[in-house]
Nucleic acid binder design. Structure first.
Lengths: 147, 147
DNA sequence: CGAATATCAGTGACACTGAAATTA
DNA sequence: CTAATTTCAGTGGCACTGATATTC
């Protein structure tokens, strides 16, 4: 389709916002068919990754915070993962309000299979950039994300 | 909450993918309250912007292509904009299958009010970067998007 | 009591696929 | 008849707010 938008007419920040939307949407679209045979949606895969990294020290509110979603939304995502037997909710003795979320053996196994596919998809979508440029992009995005 | 994820453990492409998701989600969240008083959703605003830029030469299939959504999805978005009186569908005499989408006077007026707000939101979210860095980010994203 | 944690119920915004109508 | 364009109908993924129990 080519560049149908005159780029110079767009203020810089606005164009960056549009590109971020376009590119992240493309990554999600590319990831979906890879995730489907595993029975996972993109949001479930993201949550499972965080849970897997947490070393068994992740409460629902932590998960919601790291995913940047409302606590109630995290409940739904975890509920799906529990139903698929990929994670379990472990009551925390110290604070009986809280619940820890941990991957099951099945969940950990799936995470390992997931890793390779996910990296392949991400690498393919951003393949226009070499590693140095990718690192540059990562640093710029990190600074925005940290702000 | 701080950096709860050990960044070095993540392959580069994968972390970039996560950051793209996080940052674009944050932009959408920041834009929503600005759009709400105007009665627009983010997707409607995106479509209206493209329609406004098109100089009256935009068919449904073009719009879908530029938004990177299915033609059927474009129909729904345009339908919402028509109901709000912001755009109109103009039959194309040359090809009676096609429909041109143009902004109405109200739509153009709203676009002008929208522009300022939108730019303000985008600028605020990416304010961690200076113009040179922003241009760098834009160039990197453009190359991914063009691939 | 007030604050924090997690959950329940309902809603909205978004894009998808498959099928149909119209026209080229 | 085949292909292109748009629209109709239904579905799914995703996150939101408000309200509610439980516990600190």
């Amino acid at each position: 389709m080519g560049p149908s938008i005159p780029p110079d007419a767009l203020p810089l920040a606005e164009e960056v916002a549009e590109l971020l939307h376009a590119v992240s949407g493309r990554i999600r679209a590319a990831a979906r068919p890879q995730l489907e045979p595993l029975g996972l949606t993109p949001a479930q895969a993201r949550a499972l990754r965080l849970i897997g990294r947490s070393d068994g020290q992740l409460r629902m509110s932590d998960l919601a915070g790291q995913l940047r979603i409302a606590p109630r939304s995290a409940t739904s995502v975890v509920e799906d993962l529990v139903e698929r037997g990929l994670v379990c909710r472990c009551p925390l003795p110290d604070d009986r309000r809280a619940v820890m979320v941990e991957p099951t053996a099945n969940g950990s196994a799936l995470l390992r299979r997931l890793g390779a596919r996910r990296r392949a998809v991400a690498a393919q979508v951003v393949s226009a950039l070499n590693p140095a440029e990718l690192a540059q992009l990562r640093d710029l995005l990190r600074r925005i994300d940290a702000a």
